[in-house]
Structure formats: structure tokens, C-alpha cells
């Protein structure tokens, strides 16, 4: 590999710029003072205890997890067949459809949230949880379609045809031949969808109602009135969870799954 001192220093600076704030945040979670300060005084784990003791946070965590899981699953159930159809068949207006499916990644989340609020919640009187689910589903669907599509680009459809000739019908072939060959794409789509739904604020802001909020909105609400290290503690916990997920993915699929 080529060595270049200037470049190395530059990368280190970028790295520091990205990670130092996270590191500082993590450190503040252990301070004894009742506001976030740096450097910290003393050492305590009570803010972590606070997180688990807080009913609001625990409820929000549960809601966010369930929501992210369901939205992701729905996104995959709809997204995988859609990506398959887009890759397999040439149809009129394919480019348009592709653009349409991907549009929510271009349209700001605020707009999606507002649109759903206007047309679904207000006019159809959909319950809070269902409308949250709908919103999150719309947010994550493009990730499924886009990631699975790019895995299908590497897929040689003649192996599907061979399976048909061997006596496998189209449905079975889809599950026995197509799916096993795009698992890395599906896992990557799962992770990205989950993380995106879990972290989403704009859509959730519009759609959460009294007593029902997702973790990020609960955090925002909390910060508005309190500036204590509970927030840092939650962040540390979330970072640990993300690192754990990434570690598992890296071990099982390789980090390349994310860049595909």
C-alpha cells in the first residue's frame, strides 16, 4: 500500500472529529453532577440505573423496538418481491416505478410524517400505533428495495430457470434458490431498516400522541426539561447495542454486506 503521511494525519483528524463527541458523551454518563459537564467529577452508575427505573423510557424503548421490528419485517415482505419484480421483468415504466419506490429517501421525513398525519390520522382517524407503523414502514421500504435490488443485480437468473426445468415450481424456486442467494442483502436491508426506524424522529414527531412516544422522541422531550446525564447513559447503551449488532453482522456476513 502507498504510504502518505499527510493523508494519514488527515484521516486521523476526520476520525477524531467524528468520534470525539461520542467519546465525550460517553464519559459524561459517569459523572456525579446532576447536569452534563465535562470533565466529570466523581464516578457513578446511577444514571444508568435511572434509565432502567424510568417508566417513560422503558415504555418508549419497548415501543421503538416493536415498531422497528414490525416496520422492518413489513418492509422486507413487500420490498423483496418488489425488488425481484423490478429486477426480473422488463415492463413499461420500470424506471418510473424504481424512482417511485425510492422517492421517500429523497423526500424529507418531515414531509412524509406531515402527509401521513394530514391524510391518514386526521381524515381516517387511524389509531396512533397503526399510523406510526405505516409511517415507519414507508421510511424503511426504500432501504429494503434498494439493498435487495442491488443484491439481485449480481444474481444470475438462469439458475432460477434451471431450477424450473428440474421440476421446481416458481414459488418454491423463489424460496429455495433466489432467497438463499441474496441473504446477505436481506440481512443488510434488515439492519439498515431497523436502525433507520429506531432512530427516526421526523415521522415519529408528527404521529406520536399523548402518552405514546418512541425512544428518540422521548429523549427529545426529556432533554427539553432536564439536562442530566440520563441522556448520556441512554446514548451509551444504544451505542453498545449498535456495536454488538455490527459485531454480529461482521462475524456472520462481513461488513461488506453493508456496502453492497
Amino acid at each position: 500500500m502507498l504510504k502518505n503521511k499527510g493523508l494519514t494525519i488527515f484521516s486521523c483528524l476526520v476520525f477524531a472529529f467524528l468520534f470525539l463527541p461520542l467519546l465525550l458523551m460517553a464519559v459524561t454518563a459517569f459523572g456525579e453532577a446532576s447536569t452534563i459537564t465535562f470533565p466529570i467529577e466523581g464516578f457513578t452508575l446511577k444514571w444508568f440505573g435511572n434509565v432502567f427505573a424510568s417508566n417513560a423510557f422503558m415504555e418508549a424503548l419497548k415501543l421503538s423496538t416493536v415498531l422497528a421490528l414490525l416496520a422492518t419485517l413489513l418492509g422486507l415482505i413487500i420490498g423483496i418481491p418488489a425488488a425481484y419484480a423490478l429486477a426480473r421483468y422488463t415492463m413499461k415504466g420500470k424506471a418510473f416505478l424504481k424512482g417511485f419506490f425510492l422517492s421517500p429517501t429523497i423526500v424529507p421525513g418531515i414531509v412524509v410524517g406531515y402527509a401521513i398525519y394530514q391524510f391518514v390520522v386526521v381524515s381516517l382517524r387511524m389509531p396512533i400505533f397503526e399510523s406510526l407503523l405505516l409511517g415507519h414502514f414507508l421510511v424503511v421500504l426504500p432501504y429494503s428495495i434498494r439493498i435487495v435490488s442491488s443484491s439481485l443485480e449480481q444474481f444470475d437468473f438462469s439458475i432460477e430457470e434451471v431450477a424450473w426445468t428440474l421440476g421446481c415450481n416458481k414459488w418454491k424456486t423463489f424460496f429455495k434458490i433466489v432467497i438463499p442467494n441474496i441473504t446477505s442483502g436481506i440481512s443488510a436491508a434488515f439492519m439498515l431498516s431497523f436502525i433507520n426506524s429506531f432512530n427516526n424522529i421526523p415521522v415519529s414527531m408528527f404521529l406520536s400522541g399523548p402518552g405514546v412516544s418512541t425512544l428518540p422522541t422521548a429523549l427529545m422531550n426529556h432533554i427539553e426539561y432536564n439536562y442530566d446525564p440520563t441522556v448520556s447513559a441512554i446514548s451509551v447503551l444504544l451505542m453498545l447495542a449498535t456495536i454488538a449488532i455490527m459485531f454480529v453482522v461482521e462475524k456472520t456476513l462481513g461488513i461488506a454486506a453493508f456496502t453492497k
Binding site: 444470475d156 438462469s158 439458475i159 430457470e161 431450477a163 442467494n181
Partner: peptide
Amino acid sequence: FQSYALFPH
């Protein structure tokens, strides 16, 4: 097929 189309998995 010309490409053999073996099942990679």
C-alpha cells in the same frame, strides 16, 4: 446453459 448456472449455495 452456456454459463452452467450451478446453484452457488
